[in-house]
Amino acid sequence: MFHKALWMRNQKLGSPAVWGIYISLFLFLPYSFFGKAQTMLTQKNDPYADAPENYFLNFHFTGADIVVFLFFIVGLAALLVGSERTTHATDLTFSLPFKRKDIFLSKWIFGVGHIITGLLINLLLCMLIVKFTILSEVTDAAFLLKFMLVVIPFSIAIFSFSLFIGTIAGNLISQLVLSGIFLFFPLGFISLIVSFLEYHGISINHNSPSTVLFNDLINSFTLPIPIIEFRYYIDLSDNSFTDSSHIPYVMLLIPLAYTILSVAFGTWLFSRTKNENNGRLLVFEKGRGFFTFGVVLCFALTFGMLGGGIFGDYDSRSLIGYYLSAAIGGVLAFFMLKKLIHFRMHFGK
């Protein structure tokens, strides 16, 4: 799995996304931090004339700043697996004298290596910028360590999960779309279920401690959320301070579990991959029935949620509207999927 040739092959396949990872992290972390420091310095040296004492000693950082990086992680996984399936390149890779398990694990190690390297270098640069610029007057770099504890395991989990999706998706586009859908599936599906229950007269107390705990859990299961929701804000001019960055350390078991399961199942499925179905929506024929059922159900619930208000208002919701919309959504999804599941995407023959 550490074979030089596989690394070179992965480098060729994944290089656009790898560049994207490094450049986006650099732009949205150290470059942005340095920009903030320079702005603060300018304001300190040249304060507003009407309130010279209040130059803005505030600093804020949110994980949403690096959302582009998350897209590149998913893109990297899609380039490493999905692009090969779409361009006949699997014919080269699978004819080489390597075990399929090693091919898959080499892709995982390649991606994880670049994600960790990119994050560590750029977060370290951020810490140095905080330490040696005017930012040190406002904050210390400890929050970046906290961020590191969140962003590294969750990013690895997002990449691992997207790579796993690549073992069941038959082409680049389906891998990208399915990765996006399933990464937000826990939160999305719970929202659909809550909507379904509320339409049927079962109200949810959103403020009860158990619901809050459940929401936290679902947010952590929705891998991009803990990164995007990481917030750190400090303003010394009015002594306000926000740090919603901490998540219970036990939650870090979630990305760990995602990673372990994704790598284990991904390796198992990749070793049994059906290359004859490359280019299609799904690689395996066996799971198509279950997949179709799931998609139809989710579309029905989504259409029900969105269209349910047509025949009623917020206080008196119409079940007829809900079910009519759900039926339209389900039928649409069924026929759309029937077409898509047999469509084959191939480039470069």
Partner: peptide, 20 residues
């Protein structure tokens, strides 16, 4: 598959190495 050190396959598609 290590035995494929001594086997090579040339596919009918000529596009697989085009980016190299």
């Amino acid at each position: 598959p290590e035995i494929k050190q001594k086997i090579t396959y040339v596919p009918d598609s000529t596009e697989i190495l085009k980016s190299y």
